[in-house]
Protein backbone atom coordinates (compact mmCIF):
# COMPACT_ATOMS: atom_id res chain seq x y z
CA UNK A 1 0.00 0.00 0.00
CA UNK A 2 1.33 3.39 -0.93
CA UNK A 3 2.12 5.67 1.94
CA UNK A 4 0.97 9.22 1.91
CA UNK A 5 3.81 11.61 1.21
CA UNK A 6 5.41 12.96 4.35
CA UNK A 7 4.14 16.35 5.38
CA UNK A 8 6.65 19.21 5.18
CA UNK A 9 8.58 19.74 8.41
CA UNK A 10 6.76 22.97 9.21
CA UNK A 11 3.38 21.24 8.83
CA UNK A 12 4.51 18.43 11.09
CA UNK A 13 5.61 20.93 13.74
CA UNK A 14 2.29 22.70 13.33
CA UNK A 15 0.36 19.47 13.85
CA UNK A 16 2.47 18.56 16.89
CA UNK A 17 1.96 22.01 18.38
CA UNK A 18 -1.79 21.65 17.97
CA UNK A 19 -1.75 18.23 19.62
CA UNK A 20 0.27 19.42 22.61
CA UNK A 21 -1.26 22.84 23.10
CA UNK A 22 -4.81 22.08 22.19
CA UNK A 23 -7.22 20.12 20.08
CA UNK A 24 -10.03 21.82 18.22
CA UNK A 25 -12.12 23.35 21.00
CA UNK A 26 -15.60 22.00 21.39
CA UNK A 27 -18.03 24.26 19.65
CA UNK A 28 -20.40 26.28 21.78
CA UNK A 29 -23.24 24.30 20.19
CA UNK A 30 -22.04 21.12 21.94
CA UNK A 31 -22.40 22.88 25.26
CA UNK A 32 -25.78 24.25 24.15
CA UNK A 33 -26.97 20.71 23.45
CA UNK A 34 -25.62 19.58 26.83
CA UNK A 35 -27.56 22.35 28.62
CA UNK A 36 -30.72 21.43 26.69
CA UNK A 37 -30.39 17.76 27.68
CA UNK A 38 -29.71 18.75 31.30
CA UNK A 39 -32.78 21.01 31.28
CA UNK A 40 -34.95 18.22 29.85
CA UNK A 41 -33.76 15.73 32.47
CA UNK A 42 -34.53 18.20 35.27
CA UNK A 43 -38.15 18.66 34.17
CA UNK A 44 -38.75 15.06 33.05
CA UNK A 45 -40.54 14.12 36.32
CA UNK A 46 -42.92 17.10 35.88
CA UNK A 47 -43.79 15.88 32.37
CA UNK A 48 -44.33 12.37 33.72
CA UNK A 49 -46.78 13.70 36.33
CA UNK A 50 -48.81 15.51 33.66
CA UNK A 51 -48.80 12.49 31.36
CA UNK A 52 -50.07 10.24 34.12
CA UNK A 53 -53.57 11.61 34.90
CA UNK A 54 -52.63 13.52 38.04
CA UNK A 55 -55.08 14.16 40.90
CA UNK A 56 -57.12 17.37 40.63
CA UNK A 57 -55.21 20.59 41.25
CA UNK A 58 -55.34 22.70 44.40
CA UNK A 59 -54.91 26.19 43.04
CA UNK A 60 -51.98 27.69 41.17
CA UNK A 61 -49.88 28.62 44.22
CA UNK A 62 -49.76 25.13 45.72
CA UNK A 63 -49.28 23.57 42.29
CA UNK A 64 -46.36 25.91 41.63
CA UNK A 65 -44.98 24.93 45.04
CA UNK A 66 -45.23 21.24 44.09
CA UNK A 67 -43.60 21.86 40.71
CA UNK A 68 -40.70 23.71 42.32
CA UNK A 69 -40.33 20.95 44.91
CA UNK A 70 -40.05 18.29 42.19
CA UNK A 71 -37.63 20.45 40.15
CA UNK A 72 -35.58 21.06 43.30
CA UNK A 73 -35.33 17.33 43.93
CA UNK A 74 -34.09 16.71 40.37
CA UNK A 75 -31.58 19.57 40.62
CA UNK A 76 -30.29 18.24 43.95
CA UNK A 77 -29.75 14.73 42.53
CA UNK A 78 -27.90 16.16 39.52
CA UNK A 79 -25.74 18.34 41.78
CA UNK A 80 -24.07 15.12 42.92
CA UNK A 81 -23.29 14.21 39.30
CA UNK A 82 -21.76 17.52 38.13
CA UNK A 83 -18.48 17.44 40.11
CA UNK A 84 -18.04 13.65 39.81
CA UNK A 85 -15.74 13.90 36.72
CA UNK A 86 -17.87 11.38 34.83
CA UNK A 87 -17.63 11.25 31.03
CA UNK A 88 -21.04 12.64 30.04
CA UNK A 89 -20.30 15.79 32.07
CA UNK A 90 -16.50 16.12 32.04
CA UNK A 91 -16.01 15.44 28.33
CA UNK A 92 -18.33 18.09 26.84
CA UNK A 93 -17.83 20.69 29.60
CA UNK A 94 -14.44 20.07 31.22
CA UNK A 95 -14.20 19.15 34.91
CA UNK A 96 -13.38 22.76 35.88
CA UNK A 97 -16.43 24.17 34.10
CA UNK A 98 -18.59 21.40 35.61
CA UNK A 99 -17.48 22.38 39.12
CA UNK A 100 -18.19 26.08 38.41
CA UNK A 101 -21.62 25.14 37.07
CA UNK A 102 -22.20 23.06 40.22
CA UNK A 103 -21.48 26.18 42.32
CA UNK A 104 -23.76 28.45 40.30
CA UNK A 105 -26.58 25.90 40.17
CA UNK A 106 -26.37 25.65 43.97
CA UNK A 107 -27.74 29.22 44.00
CA UNK A 108 -30.57 28.16 41.70
CA UNK A 109 -31.28 25.14 43.90
CA UNK A 110 -31.47 27.30 47.04
CA UNK A 111 -33.82 29.75 45.29
CA UNK A 112 -36.06 26.91 44.04
CA UNK A 113 -36.26 25.26 47.48
CA UNK A 114 -36.87 28.60 49.23
CA UNK A 115 -39.65 29.42 46.77
CA UNK A 116 -41.13 25.93 47.32
CA UNK A 117 -41.26 26.45 51.11
CA UNK A 118 -42.67 30.00 50.88
CA UNK A 119 -45.35 28.99 48.37
CA UNK A 120 -46.40 25.97 50.46
CA UNK A 121 -47.22 28.41 53.29
CA UNK A 122 -48.76 31.13 51.08
CA UNK A 123 -50.93 28.55 49.29
CA UNK A 124 -52.27 27.24 52.58
CA UNK A 125 -51.32 29.18 55.73
CA UNK A 126 -52.29 26.19 57.90
CA UNK A 127 -49.12 24.56 56.52
CA UNK A 128 -47.18 26.72 58.97
CA UNK A 129 -47.90 23.91 61.41
CA UNK A 130 -45.52 21.74 59.37
CA UNK A 131 -42.64 23.64 60.97
CA UNK A 132 -43.68 22.58 64.47
CA UNK A 133 -40.84 20.22 65.41
CA UNK A 134 -43.02 18.21 67.81
CA UNK A 135 -46.38 18.08 66.08
CA UNK A 136 -45.33 17.99 62.40
CA UNK A 137 -45.67 14.76 60.41
CA UNK A 138 -42.43 12.89 59.58
CA UNK A 139 -42.56 14.00 55.94
CA UNK A 140 -42.31 17.64 57.07
CA UNK A 141 -39.54 16.86 59.53
CA UNK A 142 -37.61 15.14 56.74
CA UNK A 143 -37.98 18.29 54.61
CA UNK A 144 -36.78 20.54 57.43
CA UNK A 145 -33.83 18.22 58.12
CA UNK A 146 -32.96 18.26 54.41
CA UNK A 147 -32.97 22.07 54.41
CA UNK A 148 -30.79 22.11 57.54
CA UNK A 149 -28.31 19.74 55.84
CA UNK A 150 -28.23 22.00 52.76
CA UNK A 151 -27.75 25.10 54.90
CA UNK A 152 -24.85 23.41 56.75
CA UNK A 153 -23.37 22.34 53.41
CA UNK A 154 -23.49 25.87 52.02
CA UNK A 155 -22.22 27.45 55.24
CA UNK A 156 -19.27 25.02 55.41
CA UNK A 157 -18.39 25.85 51.79
CA UNK A 158 -18.62 29.62 52.19
CA UNK A 159 -16.87 29.72 55.57
CA UNK A 160 -14.35 26.90 55.00
CA UNK A 161 -11.27 29.12 55.16
CA UNK A 162 -12.60 31.30 57.94
CA UNK A 163 -13.32 28.33 60.18
CA UNK A 164 -10.04 26.67 59.07
CA UNK A 165 -11.70 23.52 57.89
CA UNK A 166 -9.12 21.32 56.13
CA UNK A 167 -9.87 20.76 52.44
CA UNK A 168 -10.06 16.96 52.73
CA UNK A 169 -12.39 17.17 55.74
CA UNK A 170 -14.56 19.72 54.00
CA UNK A 171 -14.88 17.42 50.98
CA UNK A 172 -16.00 14.54 53.20
CA UNK A 173 -18.51 16.78 54.95
CA UNK A 174 -19.72 18.22 51.64
CA UNK A 175 -20.41 14.82 50.10
CA UNK A 176 -21.98 13.49 53.32
CA UNK A 177 -24.32 16.48 53.71
CA UNK A 178 -25.20 16.40 49.99
CA UNK A 179 -26.12 12.71 50.08
CA UNK A 180 -28.00 13.24 53.37
CA UNK A 181 -29.98 16.18 51.96
CA UNK A 182 -30.90 14.13 48.90
CA UNK A 183 -32.01 11.10 50.94
CA UNK A 184 -34.12 13.30 53.24
CA UNK A 185 -35.68 15.09 50.25
CA UNK A 186 -36.62 11.77 48.67
CA UNK A 187 -38.13 10.68 52.01
CA UNK A 188 -40.11 13.95 52.10
CA UNK A 189 -41.43 13.38 48.56
CA UNK A 190 -42.39 9.79 49.38
CA UNK A 191 -44.17 11.00 52.53
CA UNK A 192 -46.10 13.70 50.63
CA UNK A 193 -47.23 10.93 48.27
CA UNK A 194 -49.09 13.18 45.86
CA UNK A 195 -47.36 13.23 42.51
CA UNK A 196 -44.56 10.70 42.78
CA UNK A 197 -46.58 7.51 43.10
CA UNK A 198 -46.04 6.24 39.55
CA UNK A 199 -43.77 6.98 36.59
CA UNK A 200 -42.70 10.36 37.97
CA UNK A 201 -41.65 8.67 41.20
CA UNK A 202 -39.59 6.15 39.27
CA UNK A 203 -37.88 8.99 37.40
CA UNK A 204 -37.04 10.82 40.62
CA UNK A 205 -35.76 7.58 42.14
CA UNK A 206 -33.64 7.01 39.02
CA UNK A 207 -32.18 10.53 39.25
CA UNK A 208 -31.37 10.03 42.93
CA UNK A 209 -29.74 6.68 42.08
CA UNK A 210 -27.65 8.33 39.35
CA UNK A 211 -26.53 10.95 41.89
CA UNK A 212 -25.50 8.30 44.39
CA UNK A 213 -23.76 6.25 41.68
CA UNK A 214 -21.79 9.35 40.68
CA UNK A 215 -20.58 9.71 44.28
CA UNK A 216 -19.68 6.01 44.35
CA UNK A 217 -17.73 6.41 41.08
CA UNK A 218 -15.81 9.46 42.34
CA UNK A 219 -15.07 8.16 45.82
CA UNK A 220 -14.65 4.39 45.35
CA UNK A 221 -14.50 3.10 41.77
CA UNK A 222 -12.27 5.78 40.23
CA UNK A 223 -9.61 5.66 42.99
CA UNK A 224 -9.46 1.89 42.55
CA UNK A 225 -8.88 2.26 38.81
CA UNK A 226 -6.26 4.94 39.35
CA UNK A 227 -4.43 2.71 41.81
CA UNK A 228 -3.64 0.43 38.87
CA UNK A 229 -1.82 3.29 37.07
CA UNK A 230 0.45 4.80 39.73
CA UNK A 231 3.26 7.33 39.30
CA UNK A 232 6.51 7.49 41.20
CA UNK A 233 8.02 10.68 42.54
CA UNK A 234 11.35 10.70 40.73
CA UNK A 235 12.72 14.00 41.98
CA UNK A 236 11.64 16.79 44.29
CA UNK A 237 13.25 19.94 42.89
CA UNK A 238 13.27 23.18 44.90
CA UNK A 239 12.37 26.16 42.73
CA UNK A 240 12.72 29.90 43.19
CA UNK A 241 9.82 31.55 44.99
CA UNK A 242 9.35 28.89 47.64
CA UNK A 243 7.96 26.31 45.23
CA UNK A 244 8.95 22.71 44.58
CA UNK A 245 8.55 20.66 41.44
CA UNK A 246 7.39 17.08 41.86
CA UNK A 247 8.84 15.28 38.84
CA UNK A 248 6.88 12.06 38.37
CA UNK A 249 7.35 8.96 36.26
CA UNK A 250 4.57 6.64 35.15
CA UNK A 251 5.10 3.23 36.73
CA UNK A 252 4.22 0.35 34.41
CA UNK A 253 2.24 2.43 31.93
CA UNK A 254 2.76 5.27 29.47
CA UNK A 255 1.00 8.02 31.35
CA UNK A 256 -2.17 9.81 30.29
CA UNK A 257 -1.70 12.33 27.44
CA UNK A 258 -2.66 15.85 28.48
CA UNK A 259 -2.85 19.30 26.92
CA UNK A 260 -0.80 22.18 28.25
CA UNK A 261 -2.98 24.25 30.57
CA UNK A 262 -4.81 21.26 32.01
CA UNK A 263 -4.65 20.01 35.60
CA UNK A 264 -4.90 16.80 37.60
CA UNK A 265 -5.91 15.80 41.11
CA UNK A 266 -2.87 14.46 42.89
CA UNK A 267 -3.12 12.01 45.74
CA UNK A 268 -0.67 9.94 47.74
CA UNK A 269 -1.19 6.29 46.81
CA UNK A 270 -0.59 5.13 50.36
CA UNK A 271 -2.67 7.84 52.05
CA UNK A 272 -5.30 6.09 54.09
CA UNK A 273 -7.92 8.76 53.58
CA UNK A 274 -9.45 8.59 50.14
CA UNK A 275 -10.58 12.21 50.26
CA UNK A 276 -7.13 13.78 50.50
CA UNK A 277 -6.53 14.78 46.88
CA UNK A 278 -5.52 18.14 45.48
CA UNK A 279 -5.79 19.78 42.06
CA UNK A 280 -2.60 21.11 40.45
CA UNK A 281 -1.78 22.35 36.95
CA UNK A 282 0.69 20.29 34.95
CA UNK A 283 3.93 22.26 34.69
CA UNK A 284 5.73 19.86 32.34
CA UNK A 285 5.63 19.62 28.57
CA UNK A 286 2.61 17.83 27.16
CA UNK A 287 5.07 16.07 24.87
CA UNK A 288 6.11 13.73 27.71
CA UNK A 289 2.96 12.41 29.37
CA UNK A 290 4.93 9.55 30.94
CA UNK A 291 6.93 12.10 32.97
CA UNK A 292 4.48 14.72 34.20
CA UNK A 293 5.55 17.30 36.72
CA UNK A 294 3.70 19.63 39.06
CA UNK A 295 5.14 22.75 40.61
CA UNK A 296 3.64 23.48 43.99
CA UNK A 297 4.02 26.44 46.32
CA UNK A 298 3.60 25.81 50.03
CA UNK A 299 0.50 27.64 51.22
CA UNK A 300 -0.74 25.14 53.77
CA UNK A 301 -2.29 21.70 53.99
CA UNK A 302 -0.96 19.34 51.33
CA UNK A 303 1.09 22.04 49.60
CA UNK A 304 3.18 22.41 52.77
CA UNK A 305 3.90 18.67 52.83
CA UNK A 306 4.89 18.50 49.15
CA UNK A 307 8.56 19.47 49.73
CA UNK A 308 8.86 16.62 52.24
CA UNK A 309 7.90 13.94 49.74
CA UNK A 310 10.74 11.50 49.08
CA UNK A 311 11.75 10.12 45.69
CA UNK A 312 10.07 6.76 45.27
CA UNK A 313 6.79 7.90 46.84
CA UNK A 314 3.86 6.51 44.87
CA UNK A 315 1.18 8.98 43.84
CA UNK A 316 -2.06 8.70 41.89
CA UNK A 317 -3.14 11.22 39.28
CA UNK A 318 -6.75 11.81 38.38
CA UNK A 319 -6.36 13.69 35.16
CA UNK A 320 -6.00 15.31 32.82
CA UNK A 321 -8.94 17.58 33.42
CA UNK A 322 -9.72 21.15 32.46
CA UNK A 323 -11.51 22.81 29.62
CA UNK A 324 -8.59 24.92 28.38
CA UNK A 325 -7.61 24.16 24.85
CA UNK A 326 -5.55 26.63 22.86
CA UNK A 327 -7.27 27.58 19.63
CA UNK A 328 -5.54 25.60 16.88
CA UNK A 329 -5.44 28.64 14.64
CA UNK A 330 -4.39 31.17 17.25
CA UNK A 331 -1.82 33.48 15.68
CA UNK A 332 -0.09 34.35 18.93
CA UNK A 333 -0.33 33.67 22.65
CA UNK A 334 -0.46 36.14 25.50
CA UNK A 335 0.19 34.58 28.90
CA UNK A 336 -0.39 36.63 32.01
CA UNK A 337 0.79 34.99 35.22
CA UNK A 338 1.16 36.01 38.83
CA UNK A 339 3.38 34.04 41.23
CA UNK A 340 2.75 30.30 41.16
CA UNK A 341 0.11 30.99 38.49
CA UNK A 342 3.08 30.50 36.14
CA UNK A 343 2.58 26.70 36.13
CA UNK A 344 0.10 26.37 33.24
CA UNK A 345 2.09 28.97 31.27
CA UNK A 346 5.39 27.12 31.72
CA UNK A 347 3.66 23.95 30.51
CA UNK A 348 2.41 25.82 27.44
CA UNK A 349 5.89 27.23 26.75
CA UNK A 350 7.70 23.91 27.31
CA UNK A 351 5.18 22.17 25.06
CA UNK A 352 5.61 24.84 22.39
CA UNK A 353 9.38 24.45 22.55
CA UNK A 354 9.14 20.66 22.27
CA UNK A 355 6.79 21.00 19.31
CA UNK A 356 8.90 23.60 17.52
CA UNK A 357 6.01 26.06 17.58
CA UNK A 358 6.92 29.21 15.63
CA UNK A 359 4.11 31.42 16.87
CA UNK A 360 4.93 34.42 19.08
CA UNK A 361 4.43 34.13 22.85
CA UNK A 362 4.31 37.09 25.23
CA UNK A 363 4.52 36.31 28.94
CA UNK A 364 3.69 39.05 31.44
CA UNK A 365 4.82 37.59 34.73
CA UNK A 366 4.40 39.15 38.14
CA UNK A 367 6.65 38.08 41.05
CA UNK A 368 7.57 39.45 44.45
CA UNK A 369 11.27 40.02 43.74
CA UNK A 370 13.97 38.99 41.25
CA UNK A 371 15.29 36.20 43.45
CA UNK A 372 11.85 34.65 43.72
CA UNK A 373 10.95 34.47 40.03
CA UNK A 374 10.00 30.80 39.66
CA UNK A 375 11.52 29.31 36.45
CA UNK A 376 13.56 32.50 35.85
CA UNK A 377 16.53 30.75 34.25
CA UNK A 378 14.40 28.36 32.25
CA UNK A 379 12.37 31.24 30.81
CA UNK A 380 15.64 32.75 29.58
CA UNK A 381 16.55 29.45 27.91
CA UNK A 382 13.07 29.05 26.43
CA UNK A 383 13.23 32.50 24.88
CA UNK A 384 16.21 31.26 22.86
CA UNK A 385 14.25 28.23 21.59
CA UNK A 386 10.89 29.84 20.75
CA UNK A 387 9.59 33.29 19.88
CA UNK A 388 9.06 34.28 23.52
CA UNK A 389 9.19 37.72 25.10
CA UNK A 390 8.99 37.87 28.89
CA UNK A 391 7.95 41.01 30.75
CA UNK A 392 8.87 40.58 34.41
CA UNK A 393 6.89 42.68 36.87
CA UNK A 394 8.43 42.87 40.35
CA UNK A 395 6.58 44.05 43.42
CA UNK A 396 9.88 44.63 45.23
CA UNK A 397 12.42 45.41 42.49
CA UNK A 398 16.16 45.44 43.30
CA UNK A 399 18.09 48.76 43.17
CA UNK A 400 18.73 49.77 39.58
CA UNK A 401 15.90 47.62 38.17
CA UNK A 402 14.83 49.07 34.85
CA UNK A 403 11.98 46.71 34.16
CA UNK A 404 8.39 46.92 35.28
CA UNK A 405 7.69 47.34 38.98
CA UNK A 406 4.51 47.14 41.02
CA UNK A 407 1.58 44.99 40.04
CA UNK A 408 0.12 43.80 36.77
CA UNK A 409 -2.57 46.35 35.99
CA UNK A 410 -4.37 47.79 33.00
CA UNK A 411 -1.81 50.52 32.29
CA UNK A 412 1.06 48.01 32.35
CA UNK A 413 -0.72 45.58 30.05
CA UNK A 414 -1.61 48.36 27.63
CA UNK A 415 2.09 49.25 27.44
CA UNK A 416 3.16 45.74 26.48
CA UNK A 417 0.30 44.00 24.74
CA UNK A 418 0.31 44.27 20.96
CA UNK A 419 -2.35 46.70 19.68
CA UNK A 420 -4.15 44.06 17.65
CA UNK A 421 -5.06 41.03 19.70
CA UNK A 422 -7.74 39.68 17.40
CA UNK A 423 -5.84 36.49 16.57
CA UNK A 424 -4.43 35.98 20.05
CA UNK A 425 -5.22 33.35 22.65
CA UNK A 426 -4.94 34.82 26.13
CA UNK A 427 -4.33 32.70 29.23
CA UNK A 428 -4.46 34.42 32.61
CA UNK A 429 -3.62 32.67 35.88
CA UNK A 430 -2.98 34.28 39.23
CA UNK A 431 -4.45 35.66 42.42
CA UNK A 432 -7.93 37.24 42.43
CA UNK A 433 -6.73 40.91 42.34
CA UNK A 434 -4.30 40.21 39.50
CA UNK A 435 -6.97 38.33 37.62
CA UNK A 436 -9.47 41.16 38.03
CA UNK A 437 -6.95 43.79 36.84
CA UNK A 438 -5.85 41.70 33.85
CA UNK A 439 -9.39 40.89 32.76
CA UNK A 440 -10.48 44.53 33.04
CA UNK A 441 -7.49 45.57 30.93
CA UNK A 442 -8.19 42.93 28.31
CA UNK A 443 -11.77 44.11 28.10
CA UNK A 444 -10.60 47.68 27.55
CA UNK A 445 -8.26 46.43 24.83
CA UNK A 446 -11.18 44.82 23.08
CA UNK A 447 -10.05 41.20 23.33
CA UNK A 448 -12.94 38.87 22.53
CA UNK A 449 -14.02 37.24 25.82
CA UNK A 450 -14.14 33.77 24.24
CA UNK A 451 -10.40 34.05 23.50
CA UNK A 452 -9.54 34.71 27.14
CA UNK A 453 -9.09 31.80 29.50
CA UNK A 454 -8.78 32.78 33.15
CA UNK A 455 -7.85 30.63 36.09
CA UNK A 456 -7.68 31.77 39.66
CA UNK A 457 -5.24 29.71 41.63
CA UNK A 458 -6.73 28.24 44.73
CA UNK A 459 -4.98 27.40 47.93
CA UNK A 460 -6.33 24.15 49.28
Amino acid sequence: MARAPAAPASDRADALARRLLGAAPLRASVKGVWVAVYGLVVVLPLGAVLADAPPPGRGIVLELASALGIVGLSLLALQLVLPARVGPVARPLGADVAVRLHRHLADVLVAVIAAHVVLVVIGDPSNLGLFDPLGAPWRARAAVASCVALAALIASSVLRRRIRLAYARWRGLHVGLGVGALALSVAHAVGVDRYLASAAGLLVAALAAVGLLAVLELRVLRPRRLAGRPYLVERVVPERGGAVTLALRAEGHRGRPFRAGQFAWLKLADAPRALAEHPFSYSSSAGRPERPSFTIKAYGGFTRRAPELRPGTRVLLDGPHGSYSARPHAERFVLIAGGIGITPSISLLRSAADAGDCRPFLLVYGSLCWEQVTFREELERLSERIDLRVVHVLTEPPPGWEGEAGFIDAALLERHLPPNLSGADVFVCGSPPMLAAALAALERLGVAPEHVHAEQFVTV
Binding site: V49, G57, E63, L64, S66, A67, L101, D107, V108
Partner: peptide
Protein backbone atom coordinates in the same frame (compact mmCIF):
# COMPACT_ATOMS: atom_id res chain seq x y z
CA UNK B 1 -15.18 39.71 31.82
CA UNK B 2 -13.64 36.55 30.43
CA UNK B 3 -15.96 34.09 28.82
CA UNK B 4 -17.37 32.24 31.82
CA UNK B 5 -19.78 30.04 29.98
CA UNK B 6 -21.31 28.74 33.21
CA UNK B 7 -23.15 32.07 33.54
CA UNK B 8 -25.30 31.60 30.45
CA UNK B 9 -25.68 27.90 31.23
CA UNK B 10 -26.96 28.70 34.73
CA UNK B 11 -29.26 31.46 33.47
CA UNK B 12 -30.70 29.17 30.79
CA UNK B 13 -31.31 26.32 33.24
CA UNK B 14 -32.81 28.69 35.83
CA UNK B 15 -35.19 30.26 33.31
CA UNK B 16 -36.15 26.87 31.91
CA UNK B 17 -36.92 25.46 35.36
CA UNK B 18 -39.07 28.48 36.22
CA UNK B 19 -41.00 28.30 32.95
CA UNK B 20 -41.53 24.54 33.32
CA UNK B 21 -42.79 24.95 36.90
CA UNK B 22 -45.15 27.78 35.87
CA UNK B 23 -46.45 25.75 32.93
CA UNK B 24 -47.02 22.75 35.21
CA UNK B 25 -48.87 24.89 37.75
CA UNK B 26 -51.00 26.55 35.06
CA UNK B 27 -51.94 23.20 33.50
CA UNK B 28 -52.65 21.55 36.84
CA UNK B 29 -54.76 24.39 38.24
CA UNK B 30 -57.08 24.71 35.24
Amino acid sequence: MHHDETRWMTAAIELWCLLAALAFAALQST
